[in-house]
Design a protein around this nucleic acid. Structure first.
Lengths: 248, 248
DNA sequence: GCCGGTTCTGGTCACTGTGACCAGAACTAG
DNA sequence: CTAGTTCTGGTCACAGTGACCAGAACCGGC
């Protein structure tokens, strides 16, 4: 960023850098009904109206990249995600992407507890990741939503990032609202990884990791179907898991 | 990248995206005499001539980001790194960085076996990472080279990426030329992590990881001071380490 | 040739963390 | 009350690791 590169200094004149457009695309993940969901919007170009895309906006002069990410969600889906975890995924900069000119896109990953539905007039919607195809899910079937641009390359990267970060960081807590139970947290891992975990072993691991979660007053009532009431927890201060919790 | 973001579609006119400059900065790491080294160059702006910077160039219209990274090395240090591992680190895009205008910089990490010295007329040089300060090295002393722009934020990120990637990938082999010995490979870990490893345990771990390294014909002669000749190896096809080799 | 120092290679042993599994606690639904 | 559910706590066998030891194969100096 800033200061970027010695090239800038020398030149403006002598260096042949073009003024590419810079955009931010956001892969917003959340969990609904035990399923990992991704937010998609309708691209604005006429010829792409039958496809889906990650919400994305051009970066403004005075705006940080993180701010652009939040603005994209607000403007294109009517959503705000103040509690969310936002991190850069990577930057996609192939010269040949959009015939109308070069746009370098900084992709972001956003993890958040279940939020409101997208504003109806935006046409945005949450899709179960399982149905997207080519994402490691079970149903790589044909009726996956068709993606615009190169977003079918960004989405798998975002999912892989989220899945691997759950292994060695305490980021799973970004998906649940406080207070939560260990069952809620286990549900996060199961939804993101698409596997079933042993409740007892999961509990042992989480509780034995210092400051991963801290118990708070009170018990959570069982869901429909019964079960013993569960201890409530809130996020702890730990950021990394040592050793990692590897997916099966 | 491409296709970047629905924003592009709608607008060009209606969307208020500015045409930021896009640059690539490269953190080139290699190992010399058992020490981890970072390539730095002299910034071109007059007022920054007493500082050091990562080699960086503006991205050209027709050029991929990866190509820009290689060109920066070639033009600013006279170096080519065909065998190297090149990966994106992250993108630095704070609005306030260079007073002359906004430049979004895509930082790259490049790992390579020991190469030639930089071309003398470029003023580029390799610095022991240990002497850079604030990088987890032992000597965070005052006479660390002064960095230009925000490159003092990029460098620690690059080092942390390299250190953590050695834990869970087979990337250490990117630092050694083939054929190599397990002692060479152990030297990579020791240089990057700044620790000493037990030779026997390291050997057990590496050899037991399928396709991490594969033995080749012949023994490497001992260095000065003696020692038993060592088996030669080449890189295997494995990319990830299961389970990870954690730094002590 | 001998001897200490070096590195490489192969082995043992105790300990940690994990997966598989079991069982009781505490609830819901019928 | 009973069957089914989830939560919580426990055992056991096993894999991987760190610490350590010892022999193999080389060097240099005496």
């Amino acid at each position: 960023m800033s200061g970027t590169s010695s090239a800038v200094g020398n030149a403006r004149g002598s260096e042949r850098g073009s003024a590419c457009a810079v955009a931010v695309d956001v892969a917003m993940l959340t969990i609904r009904d035990g399923e990992l969901m991704l937010l998609l919007v309708r691209p604005q170009p006429r010829e792409l109206r039958d496809r889906w895309a990650l919400p994305g906006r051009r970066v403004r002069d005075e705006e940080s990249l993180d701010d652009t990410a939040h603005r994209a969600l607000r403007e294109l889906a009517g959503l705000t995600a103040p509690e969310a975890h936002l991190e850069q995924l990577r930057t996609y900069g192939d010269p040949i992407r959009d015939p109308r000119g070069r746009v370098v896109s900084v992709a972001y990953l956003l993890l958040t507890p279940t939020t409101d539905d997208p504003a109806a007039d935006t046409g945005a919607a949450f899709f179960p990741v399982r149905t997207l195809g080519g994402t490691g899910g079970a149903e790589d079937d044909g009726d996956a939503p068709l993606m615009a641009y190169d977003h079918d390359r960004i989405v798998p990267d975002a999912l892989e990032r989220a899945r691997s970060k759950l292994e060695y960081t305490a980021l799973a807590t970004a998906f649940v609202a406080e207070p939560f139970t260990l069952g809620d947290l286990r549900g996060v891992y199961e939804a993101v990884w698409g596997v079933e975990l042993d409740a007892a072993n999961f509990r042992r691991k989480v509780v034995s990791t210092r400051d991963f979660v801290v118990p708070v007053e009170g018990l959570a009532p069982p869901g429909p179907g019964g079960g013993r009431p569960a201890q409530r927890y809130r996020r702890g201060s730990a950021e990394r898991l040592h050793p990692a919790m590897l997916r099966p």
